[in-house]
Amino acid sequence: MAETLVKDLIEEAQGRQQARRLAVREFRPRRASAGFAAALLLTASGGVAAIELLAAALGSAVHPVPGVAPVVDVLRGYAWADPDVLVVAGGVAALGTAFLLAALPGRLRGIPLAGDDPRLAGVIGRAALRRALADAALDVPGIERARVRGLGVLRRGLVVRATTCYRNPANSAELVQRAIGARLDRIEPMHRPAVDVRLGWRKD
């Protein structure tokens, strides 16, 4: 009995881990445009260089690729210390930095949902989750405005700014916190974000 229980627990933990891996794999940003740009750059530069170098190796004085002849003249006329060359070199370095930044893993496209099926990955968008939580806060009696922020790169948790029409808020902040917690229970994200409720009330 106890052995079965431990086995079940281990299998469940493994399932959760594999589900998390699938979610991370599926919802990691693809960086399709950066990949396409890099591949295009590689193909174009490699192709032009190969044609020109082969022509030069065969002893041809003609540049087969249109537009290369003026570029070669320009390259002969400029020195490394020319300001124009420095600007272009800086641009190339900046482009390289941009590609390197694009290669970073980045944050997931949405908030993955908890689950233990390794073949299933569910997600809810950040904006949709914030909207759902704001709706939950608005369900609390007396709350007339609610705004949810967070789940970003810098601010991982959630900040709920709610405003009540009452002059004495009493335990409204606690009620909002409970409503948000209950809505998070209904959604069940893989990583439950910390919730910080800031309540405003009538001062007149």
Binding site: R31, A89, V92, G96, F99, A102, A103
Partner: peptide, 14 residues
């Protein structure tokens, strides 16, 4: 691939 392209460009530019 993106990181390799970026590294080559960054090294060349720098």
């Amino acid at each position: 691939g993106i990181a390799a392209t970026g590294t080559v460009l960054l090294l060349a530019g720098a």
